[in-house]
């Protein structure tokens, strides 16, 4: 009798989404993450390096050093470095400076930065707002317009502002990242609302909201797992979009990634610890079905690329 290994029976597949204008694609899996021995494992997940529109404050010394103090206040130089020196697959411009409770940069200023970054790089651009629903709606009407033709990812789109931002995405030809608070039911609902508006499924990424290692990663993982199982095994078409994890700010907010070796001698070298915290968060998310990871540390990008290569075989 010939031995045949047990194989899962799949009833659906993740759709492919094109990012940027250079043919980068995510999604396309016909099996659970990295189960290439069961069928088509689809496109490799990609690593996006986060770039801030304003100079970051309170980042750990080792992270600042790795990125380079000289580029931290210059999103264009920072993005070019991510592309040319760190081997990133994409850049995520975080418009944290537009937050009304922070620098409150105007939609026009944000648009100017976004355009400059977009013009400086050839790889896909992701633009994340501050998360303030009203301000993001205003910002993305302008940002969407100036980035017309770039096929950028814009987000986070939430239930309270999806109409404005999804309309901007449709009007100017962008992909949206729909964010819901670690809740698969709400993720499905937001996808329905956006597709009802006329946004095609291949212009949507699911942002499930991300908790870092030690700070809710397990909840995020469970939601992603349920999402992928429903999409692939139950064939739920409304959940068959690739997943984006905006994880950098969460990983680097954790005490474990930030605190110095002097303060916590038992925790060991701070530089290495920070990278590990970001890498381990990323690896868990990859196993859960992440297609796009937004991270900060160049070395973490290296390790995650290697990991993806090994897992994908």
């Amino acid at each position: 009798m010939v031995y045949s290994p047990a194989a899962e029976k799949y009833n659906g597949e993740i759709g492919e989404v094109v990012l940027g204008t250079d043919g980068v694609k995510v999604g396309g899996q016909k099996v659970l993450p990295f189960q290439g021995f069961e069928g088509e494992a689809g496109n490799h997940p990609i690593i996006a390096i986060e770039v801030l529109d304003v100079e970051p404050e309170g980042w750990p010394e080792a992270l600042v050093e790795a990125i380079g103090q000289d580029v931290l206040g210059d999103p264009v130089a920072w993005a070019k470095k991510a592309q040319d020196e760190w081997g990133a697959d994409a850049v995520c411009l975080s418009l944290v400076g537009t937050d009304p409770n922070a620098a409150d940069r105007s939609p026009d200023e944000a648009a100017e930065t976004a355009k400059a970054v977009s013009d400086a790089i050839s790889m896909p651009l992701i633009v994340y707002g501050s998360g303030n629903v009203e301000k993001d709606a205003e910002v993305f009407q302008r940002v969407g317009e100036v980035l017309q033709g770039a096929n950028a990812v814009i987000g986070p789109v939430k239930e309270d502002n999806y109409k404005t931002i999804a309309a901007a995405a449709m009007g100017f030809g962008h992909v949206v990242a729909g964010e819901t608070p670690i809740d698969v039911n709400m993720a499905k609902q937001l996808n329905i609302l956006m597709t009802n508006l006329g946004l095609p499924a291949d212009k949507i990424l699911v942002d499930p909201s991300t908790g870092a290692l030690g700070y809710g990663l397990d909840y995020t993982f469970s939601v992603m797992e349920r999402d992928r199982l429903s999409a692939l095994l139950q064939g739920d078409k409304v959940l068959q979009m690739p997943i984006i994890n905006n994880m950098a700010k969460e990983a680097w907010k954790s005490k474990e990634a930030k605190v110095s070796a002097e303060e916590e001698p038992a925790w060991g070298d701070a530089a290495e610890r920070g990278i590990l915290w970001e890498v381990l968060t990323g690896v868990a998310l990859l196993m859960g079905g992440a297609d796009v990871l937004i991270i900060r540390h160049p070395k973490a990008a290296d390790v995650l690329h290697t990991t993806i290569g090994l897992l994908a075989g």
Binding site: R226, Q234, D236, V238, L239
Partner: peptide, 12 residues
């Protein structure tokens, strides 16, 4: 539990 619940499940 054959399909994920959401508020608009009847539309699907």
């Amino acid at each position: 539990n054959d399909t994920v619940f959401c508020q608009s499940y009847l539309e699907l």
